[in-house]
Structures are given as structure tokens and as C-alpha cells.
């Protein structure tokens, strides 16, 4: 936390420095949650060691015993399968680039929609539309892949049948599942389509938490709609946007497996645009259930995520010292 913000805090909280009694009360309030974290998150944390070991189980002995007494340290060997892979560059590119696009659109679109939502005259219409926009969230990627296939199948797909897309080179119907250029954009569309309704909710809730008097005051000053959005809504949404941004950035090395693997029907011809880190790990460990390697991949994703989150936090705080995560 920068000095400036500390000073601001102090100024604001004048005469209300938390007494140790307050502190105790707050601590007791979240004690159950703290215990939950200790039991379900921190107690199993020793499992990360597996990323640096060649784990061998021993029947009748606990995981912990086998981890320390039966398994060799292998240093960073478990990370080789990712780093040395011929797909490494593709993986980095697809994972990070898609995520950048997803993060930008994942903020821009829901925020815009959440603001517009409140401007529709008819409440009933607005609510009904918003409810429907939530539906794709319920459909699993496998189900989505059925529809996509119904549209894009080579011989019976709707698109090819309607538009008679024939490749001049082969004289056959266009094979959409080999068309990397198309999928590059289509994956973005699918992602937005599926997440739109869900991510709007957080921003809608934030907007409805805004004190109505602010708008009234603005009205008295004769502020236009655009001015209200610009000077009231957006600034008050900023902390939420910042936090959502920071948390999304932490997942920059992770990807939605269902989107890249299931929705694309695992088409080999699309590998160059669908091989994200998670997809690669899945394919690589399809035939050997190797906990060491999968843990190593998860660990790497976590470390990178940690670094990017801290970076994003610094960036956000430069813009708005109040909005950071830490």
C-alpha cells in the first residue's frame, strides 16, 4: 500500500481508529471462515511438493508417508514436458493472447450491458432479456459442441447446406473444423456468448448498490444521461472493475478447457489455434495418469498467475490507489 493511500485512509478514519476490541470482534466474526481455509486449503497444500517429486504410492501407507519416504526428489524435471515441448510457443501464444482478448471483452461488454440494462423503459422486457442471456451459462460445453456441429458439419451442417460453401481446391464442401482463421474469431464469440449473462450480474449488483441520492443531486444540476454515467456510475464501478480485472489477470495462464477442447471437437487440424496450456496438459497425459507432471503444470500456472496479479495490482493502484487488491 503506498504512503499516499495510507495517509488518505487515516484522514478519512479520523477519530475511529479501530480499537483492539473491534479487531477481536471482527476476527471472531470471520474465524469460521479462517478455520475453513486452514482445513480445506492450507492443510492439503503440502501436495504442491509433488510437482518436484517422482511420486510413488505405497499401499497401506498414507499419501504423506509415501510422498516423503517413498518418492525421489527430481528437481525441475517435471516441468520439462511443458517447457521442452515443441508446442510450447503455440501454447503460450494461444493461452495468453486469447486471455488478453477475453479480459478486455469480459469487462467491456458486461459493463456496457449492465449500464444499458437500466435504461430500458420496460422493466419487464429488460428482466426477461437478461434472464434469457443467462441460459448459455447452463449449457455445458459438450452440449454447445452439438449445436456448433449442427451448424458447421461438413456435409449436413446448416451453413454448408444454406450457402453451398465449396472449396475450389478440393471440389468438396468447406471443412469448417479445419479452418483456423474462422475458429480464431469464433472461439472469442463463443466465450462472450456463454459468459455474457453471468458476468453482467456482478456489475448490475454494483450499480444497484449505488446511492440514489447521487443521481438526484446530478439531476438537480442538470446532468445529462451520459454525464451521469461518466461521473457517477463509472467511477463507482471502478473498484469492482479493478478487482475483476486483477483476478482475471491472475488466470492469464489458464484457459477454459471446455471451450478449447470440447467445443472444437478436439479437431486435430485446429491445433494451432486451440492448443492452450490446459489442453496440451490434458492431451499429453491422456494415456499416463501422471500426478507429478500435472501438478508441475498447475504449479507453473499458479506462479505465473501470482506474478501477473501482483503486477496488475501495482498497475491498478497507479490509476486508483483505493482500488487494488492488497
Amino acid at each position: 500500500m503506498s504512503n499516499l493511500s495510507v495517509k488518505q485512509k487515516k484522514k478519512k478514519g479520523k477519530g475511529s481508529t479501530g480499537s483492539s476490541f473491534d479487531n477481536l470482534e471482527i476476527f471472531l466474526l470471520h474465524l469460521p471462515t479462517t478455520i475453513w481455509y486452514l482445513l480445506f486449503c492450507y492443510a492439503p497444500m503440502f501436495g504442491v511438493i509433488i510437482a518436484f517429486k517422482n511420486y510413488k504410492p505405497r499401499p497401506g501407507k498414507s499419501f504423506l508417508w509415501a510422498l516423503f519416504n517413498n518418492s525421489k526428489w527430481v528437481g525441475l524435471d517435471n516441468f520439462k514436458f511443458l517447457v521442452n515441448s515443441s508446442y510450447f510457443e503455440t501454447m503460450l501464444k494461444t493461452t495468453v493472447l486469447y486471455n488478453i482478448v477475453f479480459i478486455i471483452l469480459g469487462i467491456l461488454i458486461p459493463v456496457t450491458l449492465a449500464i444499458l440494462f437500466n435504461e430500458i423503459y420496460s422493466r419487464k422486457l429488460a428482466k426477461t432479456c437478461q434472464t434469457m442471456m443467462f441460459l448459455p451459462h447452463f449449457l455445458s460445453w459438450v452440449v454447445v459442441s452439438y449445436f456448433v456441429y449442427a451448424f458447421l458439419a461438413t456435409d449436413q451442417g446448416l451453413v454448408n447446406n444454406l450457402f453451398k460453401q465449396i472449396d475450389p481446391a478440393t471440389g468438396r464442401y468447406h471443412n469448417w473444423y479445419a479452418d483456423t482463421n474462422f475458429w480464431m474469431y469464433f472461439l472469442v464469440f463463443l466465450n462472450v456468448w456463454k459468459g455474457m449473462g453471468y458476468s453482467m450480474v456482478v456489475y448490475m449488483a454494483s450499480i444497484s448498490g449505488i446511492d440514489g441520492e447521487l443521481y438526484e443531486a446530478a439531476l438537480i444540476d442538470g446532468a445529462t444521461k451520459w454525464q451521469q454515467v461518466k461521473y457517477i456510475t463509472l467511477p463507482l464501478l471502478r473498484p469492482t472493475i479493478s478487482i475483476m480485472f486483477i483476478m482475471a489477470v491472475g488466470n492469464i495462464f489458464r484457459s477454459d478447457f471446455g471451450l478449447f477442447y470440447q467445443a472444437t471437437r478436439n479437431s486435430g487440424a485446429l491445433t494451432s489455434v486451440t492448443q492452450t496450456i490446459d489442453v496440451y496438459v490434458y492431451k499429453a497425459l491422456l494415456e499416463q495418469s501422471n500426478v507429478n507432471l500435472s501438478s508441475a503444470a498447475a504449479f507453473l500456472q499458479s506462479v505465473v498467475g501470482c506474478l501477473t496479479i501482483i503486477g496488475a495490482n501495482v498497475l491498478v493502484k497507479k490509476i486508483d490507489p483505493e482500488a487494488g487488491l492488497f
Binding site: Y37, M45, G47, V48, M247, G305
Partner: peptide
């Protein structure tokens, strides 16, 4: 500040399925 970090770390790191299963 301590508890912000306290809940932040598990958001990224986890002990994995086998460790959780055992616990």
C-alpha cells in the same frame, strides 16, 4: 492485510486432488 494474503494464496495454489482427498 494478512488475511487478504491468506485468502489470496489458495486462489492460485492448491495441494491437488490427492492431498485434498486424503484430508
Amino acid at each position: 492485510k494478512f488475511f487478504t494474503w491468506f485468502i489470496f494464496i489458495p486462489m492460485l495454489f492448491s495441494g491437488g486432488l490427492v492431498a485434498s482427498y486424503m484430508i
